[in-house]
Nucleic acid binder design. Structure first.
Length: 197
DNA sequence: ACCGGGATGTTCT
DNA sequence: GAACATCCCGGTG
């Protein structure tokens, strides 16, 4: 039961992404096992918010690894990333889905009536944020120090030896990169929808 | 089950 | 003014 340290995040996000599978996101009494992630690789990645350089929106991505980058999208949703690498690199891993472990009542009440089954609580990046109450107020929090009460821990379960892999979901630019990984067979992994052209 | 469309507002062109 | 790292609901098979 150890909190992931700075050195865990200070690497290539494609490596960090795979290593984050089966780690546990914690906020207070709420916790869930991470089962689906995507890597976003800065200036070389047309699908990344960091592709066109630093702005006020994505500033957290350019901070040190271990930061929590929370952004607003589609007019109503929040998504959370673990920042990777070093200062000014603009690298991150999007937390896409998780398997609820503890604090189920809190997760349910935060998600509302649309979440009928436990697998509806955290089976998508915006659902996960809603379930954990992550919004603008958490952008820039430090996962390493547990700043603002959010952290990621290792409870001893190893990442899958052979994770599922695909292109990333919902992108137009950068859609060719196969930088999504997930725990094969987990019911909380979000549905793979192909983007209409 | 698998589609299609609407909600909703910030960000960048 | 368009795009957007999404979700939910109501149609149809």
């Amino acid at each position: 039961m150890t909190v992931l340290g700075r050195e865990f995040y200070a690497r290539d996000p494609k490596v960090v992404a795979k290593q984050l599978l089966n780690k546990v996101l914690v906020r207070g009494g709420r916790s869930a096992r991470i089962v689906e992630v995507e890597a976003y690789c800065g200036p070389i990645d047309a699908g990344s918010h960091a592709f066109r350089g630093q702005t006020s929106r994505n500033a957290t991505m350019f901070g040190p690894g271990g930061g929590l980058y929370v952004y607003f999208t589609y007019g109503m949703h929040w998504c959370a990333n673990a920042v990777c690498g070093d200062v000014d690199e603009g690298l991150a891993v999007l937390l896409r889905a998780a398997a609820p472990l503890t604090g189920l009542d809190e997760l349910r009440s935060a998600r509302g009536p649309a979440a009928k089954r436990d697998r509806d609580l955290c089976s998508g990046p915006a659902k996960l944020c809603q379930a954990f109450g992550l919004d603008r107020a958490f952008d820039g929090a430090d996962l390493v120090t547990g700043d603002r009460g959010v952290t990621i821990i290792d409870d001893g379960r190893k990442p899958p030896r052979r994770p599922g892999n695909s292109v990333r979901i919902g992108l137009s630019a950068g859609a060719e990169h196969p930088w999504r990984w997930y725990v094969e067979g987990d019911p909380n992994v979000s549905a793979l929808r192909l983007r209409k052209e």
